Simulated scan of single mutants.
Amino acid sequence: MTEVLAHPPALPLLRFARGALARLRRAVDGVLILLLTAMIVIVLAQVVARYGFNRSIAGADEAATFAQIWMVLLGAGYAMRQRLHVSIELVVERLPVLAARLLLIPVAGLCLWFLWVVFQGGLLLMQVGAWQTSPGLQVPMDIPYAMIPAGAAYFALEAALAFGAAILGLEKVTTGGGVRVD
């Protein structure tokens, strides 16, 4: 009598990929927390300096703005991971499961193509930004612009994983609508 394994042993490459993905996600979570913390501290310090000491902190507004932009662009991938993006599932919900999965293939392709265009545009913007400095912080603008391709790449990774799991039947095709509370 042969015993059927519930989970076959993972290939070393698959185990490495899963570990790398887990480390990347932890790093993204940590960076998002740091960006939010920095934004709160910077804005709070600026408010105290302006209203408490009648002074302004040079570059504080710009630093908070850069932190917010980085947080939004990186947070888009986080939202994709958590399935928090708005989606219209009216058609997909009414299709048989196989047809819904097949419909996700061109949808995923269009989403990934759009993120590729954003990635390429971000690289071009970084090239232009390398010649400019920000007015408040005097940092090269390619540093703040770097989040555009980085955010697009992370979003594309999470989108490919989410769409791939739904297309392959590893996850439900639809989220069931409404707001997740789990």
Rank of each mutant, 00 (worst) to 15 (best):
A108C: 15
Y51E: 04
G77A: 06
H85G: 07
L123C: 11
A76Q: 02
P9C: 07
F66C: 01
E3P: 06
R15V: 00
A99Y: 03
L124K: 13
R26M: 15
M147T: 15
R25L: 13
G109V: 05
V179T: 09
M147A: 09
L98M: 10
G30I: 08
F155S: 03
I143N: 01
L74M: 08
A160G: 01
P106F: 10
L161N: 09
V91E: 02
I57W: 04
N54D: 14
A27R: 12
E158G: 01
D142Y: 15
Q127I: 12
K172W: 00
Y154F: 15
R25D: 15
W113R: 08
Q132R: 12
A160C: 00
A22Y: 13
L5P: 01
R50G: 06
G19Q: 00
E93P: 01
A64Y: 03
G164V: 04
L110F: 07
I40N: 12
R55W: 09
I105W: 12
A38M: 03
M1P: 10
L36H: 06
M141F: 05
L115N: 11
V181P: 00
F53D: 07
W131G: 12
V43S: 14
A49I: 07
G52A: 10
M1R: 09
A27E: 09
K172S: 07
F163D: 00
L14D: 14
M126G: 14
V31F: 11
A27I: 14
V41M: 12
L104D: 11
L112A: 10
A159M: 09
L110T: 05
L168Q: 01
L110E: 02
V91D: 03
D142G: 06
A152M: 09
P140S: 02
L170C: 02
R94N: 03
A79D: 00
V117T: 13
I42R: 13
V173W: 03
I57D: 06
M141L: 14
E3R: 13
P149R: 05
L32A: 11
V86N: 02
I33P: 09
M80L: 04
A159P: 05
V91A: 05
A159Q: 02
R55M: 11
F114P: 00
Q46A: 02
P8D: 05
A22M: 14
A153D: 01
L11N: 10
A108H: 09
L5M: 09
I105C: 11
A166K: 01
R15A: 03
R50I: 04
V97R: 06
V47I: 15
G30T: 14
I33C: 13
V139L: 13
V91Y: 03
E171H: 08
C111T: 14
M39P: 03
G129F: 14
A152C: 09
I105K: 10
I69C: 05
V118T: 00
L102R: 02
Q127H: 12
L98K: 12
I57T: 08
G30M: 13
Y51Q: 04
V118S: 00
A100M: 10
P96E: 06
L124C: 07
V139C: 08
G177M: 02
A156Q: 03
Q68I: 02
R101M: 04
A153K: 01
A67G: 03
A79I: 01
R23N: 05
A27F: 15
